[in-house]
């Protein structure tokens, strides 16, 4: 197999937890929180990896760290032969690694028209555009927007239309990798299919690798090849999408999948309701960080931290007592 396009080794990202005098008074370990705590993963050309997890699990921070928008506190990132943890030329890196931001309207300059926005990547990277009008029309058509959108401003777009502009901007310079942060957030179900189809089409046509961040579990099956599940800034399980959906090995993955509301009353499954909420990053539980909420935790889970090891179900799991193939937790 070819070398991975993107490799993350033990990546961590920290943020200051306190400021001012309180930071000076606090012990060193209380001054910072680890938003991403030792994540390793890889992505090959043409592959789509979905990062799933709940708010605060560090998904977005991880993507921003890969793209150099927040500094790394440790670890290595290799992309397309370049070491991103050293000081790369970010401008050239970002031409090959595009980012689709979570807020579709907020990530577009309110003072530029759609026509200008869609050609902006050419300007930033000094790529000749040729006939601007023809090029803009062609790009709008590829994104599924009428040519007369060219003169509109972002506030005149609906969420789905703004998202299309975001997709077009990310893809116009033929990147090798796209980091897509919640591409369906805030979209109606009747629209989200169109956006995902657009992304799927481009991916197949150009062999694009995609790191997609989502908490929409319903779309996983249709867009992802592999899934990595994050909890408190760590990957707790990773594996092929079918295995994650049908035979999750980590109790958290199982609970997450079972929590997904099912529209078809006939297909309703037993709900598994987790106790409590995700703990704060500055109050990480000892041992396995999931143990206070885990329905099948045993005594030593509170003291011994698990490592991410190959699982019998096919992927890798960070749990000392993973679930077996097809095993479920009684609700």
């Amino acid at each position: 197999m070819s070398d991975p396009l993107l490799t993350l080794r033990d990546v961590s990202v920290e943020f200051p937890a306190l400021s001012g005098l309180r930071a000076l008074m606090a012990p060193a370990e209380a001054r910072r929180v680890q938003a991403v705590a030792g994540v390793s993963l890889h992505l090959r050309a043409g592959e789509t990896l979905a990062l799933v997890g709940e708010s605060g699990s560090g998904k977005t921070t991880l993507a921003r760290a890969v793209n150099g928008l927040v500094p790394l506190a440790g670890g290595e990132v290799h992309f397309d032969g370049q070491a991103l943890h050293e000081t790369p030329d970010w401008k050239s890196v970002r031409r090959r690694m595009a980012m689709m931001f979570q807020d579709p309207t907020g990530s577009l300059s309110p003072r530029k028209t759609v026509g200008e926005l869609i050609l902006e990547p050419f300007v930033i990277h000094g790529v000749p555009v040729g006939d601007r009008k023809a090029r803009a029309r062609e790009l709008l058509a590829a994104a599924g927007l009428d040519a007369d959108f060219k003169d509109r401003y972002p506030h005149q777009l609906s969420g789905g239309q703004a998202r299309r502009v975001g997709v077009a901007r990310a893809l116009v310079l033929d990147p090798a990798l796209v980091l897509a942060d919640e591409p369906t957030a805030g979209l109606d179900v009747s629209i989200q299919g169109e956006i995902l189809n657009l992304m799927n089409r481009v991916k197949t046509e150009r062999g694009l690798a995609t790191l997609i961040i989502t908490h929409n579990l319903n779309i996983l099956r249709h867009i992802a090849d592999r899934v990595a599940v994050m909890y408190l800034g760590r990957i707790v399980e990773t594996g092929p999408v079918d295995q994650i959906l049908t035979a999750p090995a980590h109790p958290y993955t199982h609970a997450l999948m079972a929590a997904n509301p099912e529209p078809d009353p006939a297909a309703r499954h037993e709900r598994l309701i987790l106790k409590g909420e995700t703990p704060a990053l500055n109050a990480r539980p000892p041992g396995c960080e999931f143990h206070p909420r885990c329905p099948v935790a045993r005594a030593d889970c509170a003291t011994v931290a698990p490592t991410l090891d190959p699982a019998r179900t096919g992927g890798a799991v960070a749990c000392r007592y993973p679930l077996d193939m097809g095993e479920t937790i009684p609700a």
Binding site: E54, S55, H215, L217, A255, L256, A259, N260, P261, R271, I273, L274, E277, T278
Partner: peptide, 9 residues
């Protein structure tokens, strides 16, 4: 989040 959604329902 999904795991909280089921709690609230």
């Amino acid at each position: 989040d999904a795991t909280l959604e089921v709690q609230i329902i």
